[in-house]
Amino acid sequence: MMKPVVFIVVSLALIIGFGLLYTSMVERQCKDMINRLEEVYGMIQNNNWETASSELRQADIKWQDIRKIWHAFTDHTNIDDIDESFVRLKALAKAQKAEDCLIEIAVLRNKLINVPARERLTLSNIF
């Protein structure tokens, strides 16, 4: 009699625990990415293209690590959108188009804010 109850409680606890951990991890990773992008934003504003490109490369490497984990649990459309933004941003940075770069960073930043916002356990997300 107790065995199924224990199984249900343990399974639920595992799912909820893992879910909470994953949500907080996504939030942390997005915050980190946003900070990096804001640094790149500042560098481009100061016309510091060399450091901006190097920082962007680092951000992209970091993103490649993050997306491997996200692939299992996050909507693939969101990941593809961020991928596309990164590709566009790298190309624009290479061409040193400051205005377009700044716009793309703002868009990418918004996408990164939206991912954890959609994962968050809120009434508006549930319904």
């Binding site: 799912i15 909820i16 879910g19 909470l20 994953y22 949500t23 649990f73 994962e119 549930i126």
Partner: peptide, 11 residues
């Protein structure tokens, strides 16, 4: 993930 869990229970 948690959202899917709660939505599944509600439905």
């Amino acid at each position: 993930m948690l959202l899917s869990l709660i939505r599944a229970f509600i439905i």
